[in-house]
Design a protein around this nucleic acid. Structure first.
Lengths: 337, 337
DNA sequence: CTGAAAGCGCTAACAC
DNA sequence: GTGTTAGCGCTTTCAG
């Protein structure tokens, strides 16, 4: 039982190989009657073209790769769905590849995506080994863009959300509600995004004439948020509002405050960041900063495809604006009334 | 600037094309001195083989695909990492592909993975369009296995966790703590897993001589858990324990009970399912049923690779045992003392 | 142990 | 419009 090839279609349809190929590629220079004959033959035979052969002959695969480390993040999920849809619209396919947690050092080499000609281009999604990846990709001359880069002044093309503004607006929202004792639970310094959000917070506080109070964490997760609040409270810090650098941190903070008898938002206001899936599901619903996931994905695709089409012209990085989503976890400062 | 091909290596190393190919494929029948020459030439030239050409020549790609709909699930994340590592160990690469949310109907056709020869085999991970996918894969004769199938008596090869036992054990745990008023918040009937967990619960309750009380939900999420509990309480149902069919539901249930002034676990015990990432992060830490993600991934790879190697022999489905993780959200029934 | 020759299945000029 | 002729870069017999 051999696989049916283009030759079988040639035989069955009676036209030449080239004509079949033309039909395959939607060439307009094929007589309609012949096109039908070919189409019919393909259908009868159950023919599908060999992608390996096509890739070899054309020198491109029609595949775009995206690398990530974790799937447990609904923002990434949103971005990837957006990327997928944009790509489909352009006739490309998306292949995701996760970095093996095991060895981050030489994982760049192990990625199938990085096997040069497996993909036509790559999107790097918030990766830790950014530096290594970038080096490798440049060496192999694979077109790529980065969404959510962690390296500050990378020369690579990046698609980002302005985390400084996000941090600023989150804090502004709290300030506008009359809060002045605002604690910021910051994410790991490793993340550029965490650093930027923090800067936004500090700027807003300073502008308003209040002293910033920041507590750092090792990870973006619930437990860190919980512990941070517990630690602050133990130190006698008594905020009336908290701006958490990520929704998980916010959730943990909420847990901790509740544990200490605080009511949200009556006694303490909480703002998160990212608008993770659960933010609008928990009680009270979390006020947070949303990233424009659809737009991020679309822009990344647009720019990457531009790079692939015209490797000559210089692509420019993009920085999008985040959006404040006010829900139930923030309220006017009681002391302010 | 052309890409360096095997011919360049031939020229530089002075041996024949075939010998170069042999080195590429780790053939043992190459004189060591020649091997070194070739290796050196490859290195100097920065040569990497064309995967398209290899795929074409060998008729296989060395790629295994996995399809999923969402990334926002830490159990899937665990499974996929396990799959990735197993595959790497066997010299295969993993490509993930998400179903576009847009059109579930003909998405099977749109998946790049399903383009016949793009991959050597496919793992279907808990997909809604299972029936369509299976049909398509069988038609195209692509080897595949399913993790967490939704169709009850599929003839496809599946790798599963015994959800009946999971439901049974979760309930048994509560029963052992002296609870008898145990409410079960069940997931969508659409999921085979939800139905099985529910059956396990019912069996345990019936065996113990208590009446099962089940409330169904439309989705596995926090809000549904919250609403379910609120609805029950409004109806005058007063459980002392809840077995939620999924951790998100459990989290929502916890929110609702707390909202009504219940303390966990003093006034109400909660058991979840899945051991999602947040289960051990929230407060109190959630007692739940954990799926053996690593094993699931490993088994899936083992079986799939077997199918690819020896298409003749019949592979058998596998059903693994889940594990109860007791944490802080369950306690002895107060009324029981 | 090595090499020459024959494809793998398709696309891309170039003529007709 | 359509067909002929070359490859794309590698693996695989089969002799030596």
């Amino acid at each position: 039982m051999k696989k049916v090839s283009i030759l079988d279609v040639v035989e069955k349809s009676g036209v030449s190989l080239v004509t079949v190929s033309r039909v395959l590629n939607n060439s307009t220079t094929v007589r309609e009657s012949n096109r039908q004959k070919v189409l019919q033959a393909m259908k009868d035979l159950g023919y599908t073209p060999s992608s390996a052969a096509r890739s070899l002959a054309r020198g491109s695969t029609g595949l775009i790769g995206i690398t990530l480390q974790t799937l447990g993040d609904t923002v990434f999920d949103g971005i990837i769905h957006a990327v997928n849809e944009s790509l489909e619209a352009k006739g490309y396919f998306l292949a995701l590849s996760i970095a093996s947690t095991a060895q981050l050092d030489n994982s760049a080499v192990n990625h199938f995506l990085f096997q040069e000609d497996r993909v036509d281009g790559i999107i790097l999604l918030s990766t830790f080994a950014e530096k290594e990846y970038v080096l490798e990709l440049k060496r192999k001359k694979i077109p790529f863009v980065i969404i959510d880069n962690h390296i500050e002044d990378t020369k690579a093309v990046t698609i980002n959300v302005d985390n400084f503004i996000g941090g600023y607006e989150a804090t502004r929202h709290l300030l506008d509600l009359g809060h002045s004792q605002i604690l910021h639970i910051s994410g790991p310094e490793l993340y550029l995004s965490a650093r930027d959000r923090r800067r936004g917070y500090e700027q807003a506080m300073t502008e308003a004439g209040f002293a910033p109070t920041v507590i750092g964490t090792d990870e973006f997760n619930i437990r860190c948020g919980f512990n941070s609040v517990k630690a602050c409270l133990a130190q006698g810090i008594r905020p009336t509002a908290v701006f958490a650098g990520e929704d998980g941190l916010a959730l943990g903070a909420m847990d901790a405050f509740r544990d200490e008898g605080y009511r949200i938002p009556q006694d303490i206001s909480i703002v998160g960041y990212d608008d993770q899936y659960f933010a609008k599901e928990i009680h009270p619903r979390l006020t947070t900063i949303r990233q424009p996931m659809e737009k991020l994905g679309k822009e990344a695709v647009r720019i990457l495809l531009d790079m692939i089409d015209g490797p000559s012209k210089r692509s420019k990085s993009v920085c999008l604006k985040p959006e404040l989503i006010v829900r139930e976890s923030t309220a006017e400062c009681a002391a302010h009334k």
